[in-house]
Amino acid sequence: MATNVFFAAGAKLWPEYREAIQAACAKKGLSISLSDAAPDPAAVDYIVYAPTAALSDFTPFTRCKAVLSLWAGVERIAPNPTLTQPLCRMVDSGLTEGMVEWVTGHVLRHHLGMDAHITGQDGIWRHDSKPPLARDRRVTILGLGELGTACAKALSALNFPVTGWSRTQKHIDGIACLSGDEGLEEALARADILVTLLPRTTATENLMSAERFALMPRGSFLINPGRGQLIDDDALLAALGSGRIAHATLDVFRVEPLPPDHPFWAHPGVTVTPHLAADTRTATAAEVIVENIRRGETGEPLLYLVNRDLGY
């Protein structure tokens, strides 16, 4: 019996993923029937999914062994009551590398004060200040999942003292790992530069409130490539106005695209980037999808299985 894979991630992505998934199958010697057409739901073994697709009712897919998401975040699919099949989120090397590069670039940008020289090409020789060395600039990362851990290790390798915070205690060589409410307060107090890489859950909604911003050192920097809902927008604007936060670089927002009249656009202390810190890379994502299909067919544990109770 053929292994039937339904690509329910949208027509725009279908041509590139059809080719990439077939190439990944060929590498593994895996034979599948792959289609983006509306199939007989009872004959589907796996669903390749993106939350922007039209599919929302998973009830008819009674034979489906797993829903394989192309997105790292699962907050738009995990709560779906019709989704009773195992759900796997996307963790792929290309996405992780992209996030590490984006985070490292913006950490270095703020650490070195690059903006003053990039935008100040006005004939003035600005040699009145110099940045500290990386070893004297503390970085805190909220969230020590795949992406947060990779970013923490990369920044530590550049000699930044890195503190990581997560809901449950982690142990990562070279990283000061904290957890719990008291650990969060300590992590924020150490954050000369704060990187937020937590998933969106009920526990992380508005995590960065006025009270939490007040715990950070005056003149610190915020970098958010995680989820827009982690940040209380009004609290951030107030923290920027008071000088508590010197600058915020934001890649994710509550509403995307960010509306043209949102105050972030015009604020001199905010950099807006268009949710590009960690786009899924087709070739590497296809390899993850195919590996999970192979595992499902051979009875091995699926990779990156979502814990529905935790929401990620």
Rank of each mutant, 00 (worst) to 15 (best):
C64G: 12
K65A: 09
A66N: 07
V67S: 08
V67P: 04
S69H: 02
L70Q: 14
L70F: 12
V74S: 13
V74C: 14
R76A: 15
I77Y: 01
A78N: 08
N80P: 10
N80T: 11
Q85N: 07
P86N: 01
L87P: 05
C88L: 10
C88Q: 06
M90V: 00
M90K: 00
V91T: 07
V91L: 05
V91S: 03
D92M: 06
D92Y: 02
S93I: 06
S93F: 01
G94C: 09
L95C: 01
T96Q: 15
T96L: 14
T96H: 05
E97F: 00
E97I: 00
V100I: 15
E101G: 00
E101T: 00
E101P: 00
W102T: 03
V103D: 03
T104G: 04
G105N: 10
G105E: 05
G105Y: 03
V107R: 00
V107Q: 00
L108C: 10
R109F: 15
H110F: 11
H111L: 04
H111C: 02
H111G: 03
L112V: 01
L112Y: 01
L112M: 04
D115N: 13
A116W: 09
T119N: 15
G120V: 08
Q121R: 07
Q121C: 01
D122T: 15
I124H: 10
I124S: 04
I124V: 15
W125A: 07
R126G: 08
H127T: 08
H127I: 02
S129Q: 07
K130G: 12
P131F: 06
P131V: 05
L133S: 11
L133F: 12
A134K: 05
A134H: 14
A134P: 14
R135H: 11
D136L: 13
R137P: 02
V139A: 06
V139Y: 01
T140L: 09
L144T: 08
G145S: 12
E146N: 11
L147H: 03
G148A: 13
T149N: 08
A150R: 03
A152W: 03
K153N: 04
K153F: 02
K153A: 12
K153W: 05
K153I: 14
K153C: 08
L155F: 03
S156L: 01
A157M: 12
L158C: 04
L158I: 09
L158K: 11
L158N: 02
P161D: 09
P161H: 06
P161F: 06
P161R: 03
V162Q: 06
T163K: 11
T163S: 15
T163R: 12
T163I: 13
G164R: 08
G164P: 13
G164V: 15
G164H: 13
R167F: 12
T168P: 04
Q169D: 02
K170F: 15
K170I: 14
H171C: 03
H171T: 14
H171G: 00
H171K: 14
I172M: 07
I172W: 04
D173K: 12
I175T: 11
I175L: 11
I175D: 10
L178H: 01
L178D: 00
L178A: 01
G180P: 01
G183C: 06
G183Q: 08
